[in-house]
Design a protein around this nucleic acid. Structure first.
Length: 432
RNA sequence: UCCGGCGUAGCUCAACCGGUAGAGCGGGUGGCUGUUAACCACUAGGUUGGGGGUUCGAGUCCCUCCGCCGGAGCCA
């Protein structure tokens, strides 16, 4: 008998199949067992009736407990009573392993501390299954997007000597006799080098921030996708970002809609995410906030509350551009008409999910970059390679970074970012 | 790091003004041929986070330590 996955069953109605998976719940009425079965591709109900099954099969089904692993053989039956449309009428139930202890995650509610401690088992739960399937779709969408545009994937290093953005928030490690090195906060500087070699490049990988942040939007280790394009200026950069985001949302709606619906996500809100996105300047955002009763002043950076107020005025993501250069990173290109602001943009997701992208045009002038390094008290020696990029064939270039977990949280409609990554690293949790 | 909240059975919670520990789920036993967090009956399960104090008496009040949660700053 052929081994099939649950996701294939609707194409095999009436056939005898073998399934290999786990029992997530079992209900029994004495002479009939209902095995709630999962195999990592989906969920289905297996029915074992004493009137039709062989006695030893019925007996082995009675012995199953929650999270037993099991091989089931039986016939695929179309059944309107099943939420999945089909169910399996078992002819064989072969337990692989039956737990000695009760499964710690019960059918009732649990607290978040307990669930995070059992993350290795929590991954088996249906909600987590759907979230991580959406994450998988988002990462696949990013790769498709760049493949179609002939970008080159450049894997940037995890260990770095140069500081990406600010000297604070870095994880320090001893690197043999070399001395201190850091876990990367961003691969951007390396992508800038690569874009002068490959024109249009992107990366996708983990980044680390030693911030003692305790909010629903922060992780210590999070995944970031960054892109960098030579000869792109500010406007080109925004256009690439809005095309990427609308592509990701469309891709997820087409390829993972069932998962979104299982999570209870209102997909109508996501269907509105089409290009172009609105752009407002930092100056306009300040006015908008002041009109909403905030006493924020020009020159202040935005916090989570401010981002939520701004984003609540829009149905799709919105760009906030031209921030004061003092609140932004050292490498951002000043606006030629107003040197006190830089050619940057943050993309704020709707529904209070905050900043999902930060990007900018980069300084391409050697002398100006050198001045900025000094202004930010960064050690020139460690950035010599970065300065070199401005010595040979320097061109205007732009790029951005997308926070993967924030994007997953927004598209799935999650309360907290910690469910958007398989094993979250938060402030005081490294287990499991 | 700062501010606020919480810590009671394996899990989620209840216990009035300080008066002597209770329910659901999970576990065990039995019943049930269409269950959807199945249901019904019976049953086992507790140093109330640790330490100290006040009191005739503390899960409850006070001090302290630990753990967790939420928020802020910072950021994606």
């Amino acid at each position: 008998m052929n081994w099939f996955y649950v996701e294939e069953l609707k194409d095999h109605i009436g056939e005898e199949v073998e399934l290999r998976g786990w029992v997530w719940n079992i209900r029994s009425s004495g002479k009939i067992h209902f095995i709630q079965f999962r195999d990592g591709t989906g969920f289905v109900q297996v029915v074992v009736e004493s009137s039709s099954a062989r006695p030893e099969v019925f007996e082995s089904a009675s012995k199953l407990r929650i999270e037993s692993s099991v091989i089931v053989r039986g016939k695929v039956i179309e059944d309107k009573r099943s939420p999945y449309g089909v169910e399996i009428h078992a002819t064989d139930v072969i337990p692989i392993q039956i737990p000695d202890e009760p499964y710690p995650i019960s059918k009732k509610d649990h607290g978040i501390d307990f669930l995070m401690s059992y993350r290795h088992l929590w991954l088996r739960s249906r909600r987590q299954f759907h979230i991580l399937k959406v994450r998988d779709a988002i990462l696949m969408a990013i790769r498709h997007f760049y493949k179609a545009r002939n970008f080159t994937l450049i894997d940037t290093p995890i260990f770095t000597g140069a500081i990406g953005e600010t000297a604070e928030n870095l994880f320090e490690l001893d690197y043999f006799d070399y001395g201190k090195v850091y876990l990367t906060q961003t691969g951007q500087l390396y992508l800038e080098a690569a874009c002068m070699a490959f024109g249009k490049v992107y990366n996708l990988g983990p980044t680390f921030r030693a911030e003692k942040s305790k909010t629903r939007r922060h992780l210590i280790e999070f995944w970031m996708h960054e892109a960098e394009v030579a000869y792109y200026e500010h406007e080109d950069n925004l256009r690439l970002q809005e095309e990427l985001i609308s592509y990701i949302v469309k891709y997820v709606l087409e390829n993972a809609q069932d998962h979104l619906l299982a999570l209870g996500r209102d997909t109508k809100k996501l269907q509105k995410v089409e290009v172009p996105f609105e752009r407002i300047t930092y100056d306009e955002a300040i006015k908008l906030l002041q009109k909403s009763g905030s006493n924020i002043q020009w020159g202040d950076d935005f916090g989570g509350d401010e981002e939520t107020v701004i984003a609540s005025n829009f149905e799709k993501p919105v760009f906030v551009t031209h921030y004061p250069r003092k609140v932004k990173a050292f490498y951002m290109q000043p606006d030629p008409k107003r040197p006190e602001v830089v050619r940057c943009a943050d993309l704020l997701a709707p529904e209070g999910y905050g900043e999902i992208i930060g990007g900018s045009q980069r300084i391409h002038d050697y002398q100006l970059l050198l001045e900025r390094l000094e202004e930010f008290n960064l050690p020139k020696e460690k950035y010599q390679w970065y300065l070199d990029l401005r010595k040979w064939g320097s061109v205007p270039h732009s790029g951005f970074g997308l926070g993967i977990e924030r994007t997953v949280a927004w598209i799935c409609g999650l309360e907290h970012i910690r469910e958007a990554i398989p094993f979250a690293r938060t402030l005081y949790r490294i287990y499991p």
